[in-house]
Design a protein around this nucleic acid. Structure first.
Lengths: 180, 180
DNA sequence: GGATGGAATTAACAAAAGATAAGAAAGCAG
DNA sequence: CTGCTTTCTTATCTTTTGTTAATTCCATCC
């Protein structure tokens, strides 16, 4: 990786800190920015018709997040992205990142391998677990795959991410522990 | 889009026809090829411990498919990709496509917008439907989003894709029709 | 330390889904 | 067209999940 590549990247990136509860992306936002979490924990969520908050995903350090609705569908964000822990993030506009990666093959390669690939892996594995596994297996896999999240976020968030209710997750945990 | 871009793309692409039942990608394959379906219908599936075939996804014309396990995880394919209808596909090796798109900004842009973007949209919407919707809503959304698949593939395939059993899907269809 | 509020567990009931099997319907091959 | 195979539906029963609410647990604030 050439020094020049990194320099051109650094010039476009800014760093920002978020207190617990602060928003990285608000609902309705159309901003297309890529956030790379350097430290902390972020959750994305929305409010359903019954006025319950449903957590869609949890992003710990070394993960990237984007306003997915703006990016993919040119719609305002359905989700709120909120720092659940004090968080430090690198931020770059999506256009700038595309511009940079188009003009610099090192950055293109890096982006493909470490940003895009990782996000795609996660979302694919998530679909795979919904199709191929029971909620119980899904929870056990989540614990294995994301041990760095389990003890930092409330179970009710995890339950939402797994597509079940907090009550059901509690029962699953009970079943698992009595089985062993 | 420059003529030269298209020419360099065409030179690397080959076209192939598959009879009904023929395999585009076999289980265990590590080939990294991108298939663009020009005509027909392909399904990916695997066999679970009870020796039932579980359909993971259905790919109609104008969709791209890849050996996702090889591409993302450097593992042999867990899935079989089989033509459910007589199918015509354009095929290009993943490396060749990366090579081409790295060196040609037109192709990079085209790939980002029409291949990667579309696949990402679909997989994201699928996760969203698992987290945010009930099986019944999920089915109704699937009918709306993929009317060109519904009447071409057996319901048991659709059920698998939606993460439910064929029996359950039948009941859901019954509930919906009696409701209206 | 005691009070407060949110989260997790538990309970009770209703609704839905899984499993299995049998019957009806539809598709396919000869 | 006929017979055969597969798929779809329906039924029964069991298991799991959703819903609501009560209770326990735990962390935090004063």
């Amino acid at each position: 990786m050439k020094i020049r590549s990194l320099l051109s990247l650094f010039r476009s990136v800014r760093i920002k800190k978020f207190d617990k509860g602060e928003l990285l992306i608000n609902q309705g936002s159309t901003e297309k920015e890529v956030f790379f979490i350097r430290k902390g924990l972020v959750r994305s969520y929305y409010t359903n018709k019954k006025l319950e908050d449903i957590t869609f995903q949890l992003y710990p350090e070394y993960n990237a997040l984007v306003n997915i609705h703006a990016l993919l569908f040119d719609e305002p964000s359905k989700f709120i992205y909120e720092a659940y822990e004090p968080t430090k993030a690198y931020i770059i506009s999506y256009e700038a990142l595309m511009e940079l990666t188009s003009k610099n093959s090192d950055l293109l390669e890096m982006n493909r391998r470490f940003i895009g690939r990782k996000a795609l892996k996660q979302v694919f594995q998530r679909v795979e677990s919904f199709v191929c596994q029971s909620p119980e297996e899904r929870y056990e896999k989540y614990v294995r795959d994301y041990p760095n999240i389990i003890n930092r976020a409330p179970d009710k968030y995890i339950a939402n991410v797994l597509g079940i209710t907090p009550v059901s997750l509690s029962r699953i945990r009970n079943r698992i522990s009595t089985k062993k």
